[in-house]
Design a protein around this nucleic acid. Structure first.
Length: 944
RNA sequence: GCCCAGGUGGCGGAAUUGGUAGACGCGCUGGAUUCAAAAUCCAGUUCUUCGGAGUGCGGGUUCGAUUCCCGCCCUGGGUACCA
């Protein structure tokens, strides 16, 4: 066997592991480069060929950067808390820690076989207590901070308390849900409970009753991004709304910074846009409308309806108001004659689930309350309606409706026969609303004749002057619920004293997960940790003790919820810098050296989850001075999913006869998935098929003329049920890791979704064999020529250096592979076995195919195992300089023939040479050209 | 609906600033070698009525458009009564 990849690959894997070749140093004179993959959840199914795609790309880039003289940090770890291990535990009683450890070791085996240059000494696991100790610590920091809008960063809550004690909260401008204003005297008079509940409204993580997405089947709360089409992402169970006391994260505080921070990031527009939409900034103003019935008094005044609008310029177009059915004023303002209808509407609205409301967008529903507000500028009476297209959770839960400028308001007005005022000059609104933000305002008193932009400004000025509203920015981003009713997650470092949450001291962390007999919720509906016997906090001895000792004097119950999956993944990239530090989550020194991730590779499905939360926590840790950068991932590439290629056989209906693909249309057939392992290039292994299932034992076949049965195919997501899953293991065994690495890259652009098809893998494998043959004679003996390489070979090499480096710098890994193929084809043609050429070629190839590169490097007489730190060959422009150029000559833009001419010629000389050629005469057909365009070194175009 | 990405041979894809469309690989066809097969090597492979036509469709700008502009169609992703 000439190219014995199995021996070569196992040999080098061992050498790399034994020598810790890829261990990264935290100090270096070299510049740093941090390459990170989104770490995997170690599922029981193991890796399929889609997983390594991003890892291969990041590994190639890491190895390239090492060759370019960078100190590279390229770690890997596991996001090892999660639901599947817990569900498995519920079914089997096996502790999730055991399942997780097993799965991790399977992942590790699979990863090792592909030859990644990870620094495994830095591995992190989010489920290990040494790691989640610091997740708990960050949670405590968030609890101890609030967001100050004046300094525009997170500040310690102790400062806030000092301010409250001195001046109350009237000078405080913070991100808060606190609705009351108090003086220092009032603050100092509050009870501990009252103080605590006020502080909760400021803390960056806080306890609050919130409407949550409750999934009864999973017995847990889900985040919005864990729900797809109203069903749980995992398992597809129904989800309902429920009010629960939960930990939340005040991510809202960072809305603006999360938005503006995107500008400096080298991410795709599509992910940036997803985040922008998710944050959902809208600029406008608040505006209060007074209720027309002056007899109606609430809290000693006439109630007002506050709305938020992005179009204050259209204020004169308001012809009705709409409140959300759940709006707190509805019952107060409804007139007796409409009371029954309003009650009925509210009842029906409350029965509709969020899903129904979503599905039913076309039906226009609403109900008049009989009440009116007074228009603040015209004094007109404006009717108040309720309608479920207005959401209680956004803005103020009320809108001023301007039917001429908003399509939903327009439809609502048409449906209920409400007046539609036109406040736009020369705009026809008989068919639809005019929603463009352009044009001139009319019939609007002091706004007449203004364009939208100036009208907007003038309207807000007037509103502010009247004291009925202010400039305001709204964000769609919600605070993130942080509690999960699960076992397999980080416990909170929290106990409860008189119902108030208290933080356990940092020196007592980590608070480790207790043992439980059952992983299900308790019979009285408490989370699984409610089953734990050792789950109480002794404040005297500072330790976890038996729950029977709870006396609420010195021993208190510990929080029963655990943290969500995104807790651990929001800061893991920091831990890799300093994975074994027992004193801090990451030392300042190391974080200052490695800084943020230079290149992050992973799927775009985390755009609104992980990528947003990690940015939030990074900004927070920056605010508190723990790290010196406030964005975690400078550049990100989102690799596309690898789809499976399913094979089908066609069974004629109600028989056991199978028809080959080309003849299936002649029969009534049903397509059935067939296992891809018994299909080779669409040819079915008929015997294997017959043996695959008892029912196929006596199957008959209608084949092609040559007797083969050809299967049909379809490109689909890889899944067990479609029999189209490809694991990397089989391919590594058959072709080797280097072939797999290059083939996965060769499939197409990294970002693109693409079908997996093993047909082409032989092409890449043959390339490596061809490379091997460059070094060896027919007897497989190393055979190299010494001395000066030929000009041709130098050209091939340097063209490759140039193109490869350009391709790597724009992350075009697929074209990189074809560069190598072209180079090896050329060198083979030239019969080149020159040592100096092959030495540089091997270095170039080493990021892509590290095993064979190491082997050949050693054969070339270099110290074994050193190719990773060789230096990347320097491109020499001069060897590519040509004297002549083969000019393509086109007529009216169509290429017709080529003429080889010296590059030294100027445009006139080129034109003369070309036009006098016999070929040109033929295409001119005796005509005189209108024009001749000559671009020296490029092209000649003749216009007839 | 709105936002984003994309649409090129039989297939995966290439063409970085407007300048030879289809690199590289697969598949297929023919040939060499072989008792035969595998492997390997050689030749061909966008379509074509042999004039040409051709990068989803229709226009435009240009000497020249896969590339730039306008309008549309289709596929994938995101998001949605967000005021």
């Amino acid at each position: 066997m000439e190219y014995n990849f199995q021996d070569i690959e196992s040999k080098w894997r061992k050498i790399w592991a034994d020598n810790k070749t890829f261990k990264a140093e935290d100090k270096s004179t070299k510049p740093k480069y941090y390459v990170l993959d989104m770490f995997p959840y170690p599922s029981g199914a193991g890796l399929h060929v889609g997983h390594p795609l991003g890892y291969i790309a990041s590994d190639i880039f890491s190895r390239y950067k090492r060759l370019k003289g960078f100190n590279v940090l390229h770690p890997m770890g596991y996001d090892s808390f999660g639901l599947p291990a817990e569900q498995y535990a519920i079914q089997t009683g096996q502790h999730p820690a055991i399942t997780t450890t097993e799965n991790i070791s399977r992942y590790r085996d699979q990863l090792d076989k592909i030859g990644f240059s990870f620094d495994w000494d830095r591995e992190v696991r989010t489920s290990s207590p040494e790691y989640y100790k610091w997740t708990q610590w960050i949670f405590k920091q968030l609890f101890d901070c609030y967001y100050d809008n004046k300094s525009d960063k997170a500040e310690r809550i102790s400062n806030l308390i000092t301010e409250f004690e001195a001046h109350g909260n009237m000078h405080v401008d913070a991100c808060s849900d606190c609705e009351i204003i108090f003086t220092s005297v009032e603050w100092n008079a509050y009870t501990a409970q009252e103080k605590d509940s006020i502080l909760q409204a400021y803390r960056l993580t806080f306890l609050a009753d919130s409407w949550v997405n409750w999934c009864p089947a999973l017995g847990t709360v889900l985040a919005n991004d864990e729900i797809i089409n109203g069903l749980s992402e995992r398992g597809g169970h129904p989800v309902e709304q429920k009010l629960m006391r939960q930990w939340s994260m005040r991510i809202k505080a960072y809305s603006e910074r999360l938005l503006t921070g995107l500008e400096g990031l080298d991410w795709t527009d599509s992910v940036k846009d997803i985040q922008r939409n998710w944050i959902g900034k809208s600029v406008g103003c608040s505006l209060k409308f007074q209720i027309a019935d002056s007899k109606l008094q609430i809290d000693g005044g006439v109630p007002e309806i506050e709305v938020f609008t992005t179009r204050p310029d259209t204020v004169f177009g308001v012809s009705f108001m709409v409140l959300a059915p759940e709006h707190s004023l509805v019952d107060h303002i409804t007139t007796p004659e409409f009371a029954d209808q309003i009650a009925e509407y509210k009842r029906i609205a409350s029965l509709k689930s969020a899903r129904d409301r979503e599905a039913d967008v076309k039906n226009i529903t609403g109900q008049n309350t009989g009440a009116f507000v007074i228009h603040p500028f015209t004094g007109e009476k404006i009717p108040i309606w309720i309608g479920d297209y207005v959401l209680v959770s956004y803005g103020t839960g009320a809108v001023m409706s301007v039917p001429c400028g908003d399509q939903r308001d327009y439809d609502f007005a048409k449906h209920f026969g409400i007046e539609i005022k036109n406040i736009f000059e020369n705009v026809d609104i008989s068919e639809a609303a005019y929603t463009e933000k352009s044009g001139v305002i009319a019939h609007s008193d002091f706004l007449n004749g203004l364009d939208v932009k100036s009208a907007m400004k003038k309207a807000i000025d007037a509103i502010e002057a009247k004291g009925i509203g202010t400039r305001k920015t709204n964000y769609r981003l919600r605070d993130a619920v942080f509690s999960r009713q699960r076992y397999w997650g980080e416990p909170f470092p929290v106990y409860y004293q008189e119902g108030l949450p208290k933080m356990i001291h940092t020196r007592d962390l980590p608070i480790e997960l207790p043992e439980v007999e059952k992983y299900l919720p308790t019979e009285d509906g408490k989370p699984p940790l409610g089953n734990a016997h050792q789950w109480a906090w002794d404040t005297v001895d500072n330790q976890i003790v038996d729950t029977v000792k709870i006396d609420n004097q010195t021993v208190f119950p510990i929080e029963l919820n655990t943290m969500p999956g995104w807790a651990g993944s929001s800061w893991y990239f920091l831990r890799y810098m300093d994975p074994n530090n027992d004193e801090v989550f990451v030392s300042k020194e190391k974080a200052d050296y490695w800084k943020n991730v230079d290149l992050y590779i992973g799927g775009s499905e985390h755009a609104t989850g992980h990528l947003l939360y990690a940015r939030f926590w990074t900004k927070f840790l920056f605010d508190q001075g723990f790290i010196s950068f406030d964005e975690p991932f400078q550049k990100m590439i989102n690799q596309g999913m690898i789809l499976g290629r399913s094979s089908f056989v066609y069974r004629t209906n109600e028989t056991n006869t199978f028809v080959t693909s080309s003849k299936k249309d002649d029969f009534e057939t049903t397509a059935l998935h067939v296992d891809i392992s018994i299909v080779d290039n669409d040819r079915l292994d008929i015997e294997a098929f017959k043996n695959s299932r008892a029912e196929y034992k006596n199957a008959e076949f209608i084949c092609e003329e040559n007797g083969e049965y050809i299967c049909g195919f379809e490109v689909e997501k890889m899944s067990k049920s479609k029999y189209n899953v490809q694991t990397p293991d089989q391919l590594v065994e058959k072709f080797g890791a280097d072939t797999l690495r290059m083939y996965e890259m060769f499939l197409g652009p990294l970002e693109q979704f693409k079908p997996w098809d093993t047909k082409g893998i032989t092409g890449v494998h043959n390339f490596l064999r061809k490379l091997w043959r460059l070094f060896h004679d027919k007897e497989n003996v190393l055979s190299l020529s010494e001395g000066e390489p030929s000009k041709e070979s130098l050209k091939s090499l340097h063209r490759t250096i140039k193109k490869l480096e350009e391709d790597l710098n724009r992350f075009s890994f697929n074209t990189g592979v074809s560069n190598f193929m072209i180079c090896v084809n050329e060198l083979t043609e030239q019969k080149c076995n020159n040592r100096s050429i092959l030495k540089d070629l091997v270095i170039l190839l080493s990021p892509y195919a590290p095993h064979i590169a190491e082997e050949l490097w050693e054969k070339l007489g270099n110290t074994p195992g050193t190719i990773s730190f060789a230096s990347f060959p320097k491109f020499n422009e001069s060897v590519l300089v040509e004297a002549n150029f083969e000019y393509p000559v086109s007529f009216n833009g169509k290429m017709r023939f080529k003429v080889e001419l010296p590059l030294a010629l100027n445009a006139q000389e080129i034109e003369k040479e070309v036009m006098s050629s016999a070929e040109a005469m033929k295409y001119l057909e005796g005509k005189e050209p209108k024009k001749v365009i000559v671009v020296p070194g490029r092209i000649v175009n003749v216009v007839l």
